[in-house]
Design a protein around this nucleic acid. Structure first.
Lengths: 232, 232
DNA sequence: CGTCAAATTGACAAGGCTCAAGTGCCGTGG
DNA sequence: CCACGGCACTTGAGCCTTGTCAATTTGACG
């Protein structure tokens, strides 16, 4: 927790200490685990220790829209800090480890330590900026740009989190996850990934994945990382 | 300003006083005015006193995606509170009146009055919840549901803000605004509105607008206002 | 009355969806 | 060790929703 927050803002020694003193429950979770369910009362806040997760919402007829992906170190549902009930789901997409904090205790911590509050607030604002970019991505880009954009963002966030997977790694998400994140069908995501491979922008068969031409990738995606507000 | 924030959380007398004491510059703005431009440094925070506005982003090739609409009383760019530079545009969609506050002063106010900070933070979180719903709307609903959903949200927010336009009123936004908000083209929005009229869900010709069957509207839109987190 | 932006409509094109079948991979259990 | 089952991935054919282009109408306003 403190590692993430020191990236978001300068914290004093006492604040780092207060964060470390915050009690939490750590547990292993399966790839299919749902950490937060829409409509449920908010009691805990989760921090992703390892693995990958996403936030999503469902339409009445059950189709899913993923609204963000998360990597190790991300705070998963700080977006619910000041709400009674969850307005979206938080689900794992791989097995992983999650730390649970009591939301009420977190609220008190924020009141006692404004600097922590500001760091968390900044984290919320960055999340919101990402949501805005996703509205643009899903609303105004064609399939190939959408998929490329989602991949660009994911890779940059992963790198920023200090996770550098080996050269030829696997994507943690399935093509269905990519489809639900981009507002496409998994069939069309498959065809779109093939197109990116044919254009020699990415490589790897099946779930293997490697970027061959990062600048072409960014161009196709119309990707400008400014919206991620990465600290200088 | 204080009117909006007291809705978001309980404030003490001193806090209301501090808000009222906050100096601001009030000015009339034209329907085409851009209040905040993506990439620009953040110096001020705007409050919409009257009229209608929207937040939007552009793709490289200039197509626009609106990410939220705003009514009188809304704080327009609190989302930029802790950032150096704007990541989206804020534009008027009708003529109106806007109050400008110095962002730096607002940051100090928040530090001195945690309750004000919490109220503003809650406002940010509600904005973010709306962005998530919009990702779902644009990513996973068909044209008629998208347009209906956008209209439902707009009407509820307007009512919540205490603005009850006369029975047969005009929408403040053009069909092109609706198109940019829903990820459609203005031509298709036109056809979609016609369909809603044919189904006797809405009425009014041209820009006139009236909801005939609110429950049908909500059903078509798959609209559930929970995500707006309206205080009980 | 002229002008201009917005709304409306038609004809046609196309990007993405649906349905369906088949392949490859990996873990599990006999 | 191998056979089986299941899930994800892959591919094809045809359709449908939405986009594109272009022309026309309407309404507000000077």
């Amino acid at each position: 927790m403190s590692a993430k927050l020191t990236k978001l803002g300068k914290l004093a020694e006492t604040e780092v200490a207060a964060l470390r003193a915050l009690p939490c429950r750590v547990s292993n979770v399966a790839a299919t685990a749902t950490l937060v369910r829409e409509g449920q009362p908010i009691t805990e806040c989760c921090l992703l220790v390892s693995g990958y997760a996403c936030r999503n919402k469902l339409t009445r007829d059950g189709t899913r829209q993923i609204v963000s992906f998360h990597v190790a170190g991300d705070i998963l549902d700080i977006q619910h800090l000041l709400f009674e009930r969850a307005d979206h789901n938080v689900q794992m997409i791989t097995p992983g480890v999650v730390a649970f904090f009591e939301m009420e205790r977190l609220r008190r911590l924020v009141q006692d330590h404004p600097a922590i509050g500001q760091a968390l607030w900044r984290d919320c604002l960055i999340d919101a900026s990402v949501f805005r970019e996703w509205v643009l991505n899903v609303g105004r880009r064609d399939a190939i740009a959408r998929v490329a954009h989602m991949l660009c963002e994911f890779l940059v966030r992963q790198e920023q989190a200090g996770i550098s997977p080996p050269e030829n790694s696997m994507l943690p998400m399935t093509q269905e996850h990519i489809a639900d994140a981009t507002g496409l069908t998994s069939v069309h995501v498959n065809r779109t990934l093939r197109k990116l491979r044919e254009q020699c922008v990415i490589a790897g068969k099946g779930r293997e994945f490697r970027v061959v031409d990062w600048s072409a990738m960014q161009r196709i995606a119309d990707f400008n990382p400014a919206y991620l507000h990465i600290a200088a």
